[in-house]
Design a protein around this nucleic acid. Structure first.
Lengths: 187, 187
DNA sequence: TGAGCTACCTAAACCCTTTAGGTTTCAGCC
DNA sequence: GGCTGAAACCTAAAGGGTTTAGGTAGCTCA
């Protein structure tokens, strides 16, 4: 019986893929074990429990998202940077719905303190600095940005916007316009 | 053996209360049955399955939220109405975290078509009409509003904002200011 | 009073999680 | 080459949850 040679990282990656294919609820130790051709209990050598597995996926997704944000922002600033950051989120949510859904769940304390979380925060802050807001307002601007982007994508993902015309693409553009306007003329 | 005299509505209400006390994941037919002093299988006479139960809670919550929005908006208009609507959401999310979490999940098709969903939509639309946007822009404004409010409350609820100073109350105020500004000067 | 509907029950199949403790495999070293 | 120890993997089992099928008891009303 050949070994699967699993590692925590391999298990977490498989969980992320499974979530993208069949939804977050499909992340079960049983399903993963079946996929690896291994007994369920064996996975507990690599992952503490199901919660820890989800935390792992969370952190993985955060890192991937940070990469995409960094690449998108590139040398841009101002509105271009804002759009790039938002678009990175939307592309990621569209391409990896399962990973995205995991990101929307409460993060473990360790995840909040992770390097990936820090990178996302730093990139967001760097982008916002391009708008020259008062330093003390940066937190509020960050929260507004995060709320709007995440809120939009969440509603889009769970079907709250329906499939009605006009398409959500236009609404998405309006939302980015609104954010840009707000940041440029922050009281 | 005294009968519990259950009805679908009673079961759904109990599920909602349970969610507020212990979280959405605590909504199990088993737990509810224990609460009623009844066998788990008996609940299937009143509720098709767990998914239908959650749909019931979703619709219940939507109705309660609509009531609060209506009461909050009262005779107000413009910014006052916007704040009342947003505050109704925030109060509800704070007071009934479990019900709120259920609202954030994808809605069943029947729920989308329900009277409660219609009421929330109608109230939102009525509020936005106070800003005199072009009729064709109302959809986009609605989506931006929903995204911002829901996004903010979701991030607040799942701890993404941390407990850091300054408090989220101030950020919340900034977000409402931003929405008001955007709606008043919609391009 | 008794017929019938409904509320509730027992039984059972099936799936998932998690713990405990045993066995196999493999790299590296004498 | 054979031994050894650490991983990697396994079996077994307890404990919950969901759901279906079919049986029984209690209430209502003719």
């Amino acid at each position: 019986m050949a070994r699967a040679n699993l590692t925590p990282a391999v298990v977490v990656a498989a969980a992320a893929d499974l979530a993208d294919r069949e939804g977050v609820d499909a992340i079960t130790l049983s399903a993963l074990a079946r996929g690896f051709g291994v007994q369920t209990a064996s996975l507990y050598s690599h992952v503490r429990d199901r919660a820890a597995l989800l935390d792992g996926v969370h952190e993985l997704a955060l890192g991937e998202l940070a990469d995409r944000i960094a690449e998108g922002i590139g040398g841009r600033s101002g509105r271009d940077a804002l759009v790039a950051l938002a678009e990175a989120h939307r592309d990621y949510a569209g391409a990896f719905p399962g990973r995205w859904a995991v990101l929307l769940r409460p993060a473990a304390a360790s995840t909040v303190r992770s390097a990936s979380a820090g990178r996302v925060a730093a990139l967001t802050l760097a982008m916002l600095r391009g708008y020259h807001l008062p330093e003390s307002e940066l937190v509020h601007a960050t929260r507004l940005l995060a709320a709007t982007v995440n809120g939009f994508l969440a509603l889009e993902a769970n079907g709250s916007f329906g499939h009605r015309e006009p398409s959500t693409d236009i609404s998405w553009g309006r939302a980015l316009d609104a954010l840009d306007t707000v940041f440029r003329s922050w009281a």
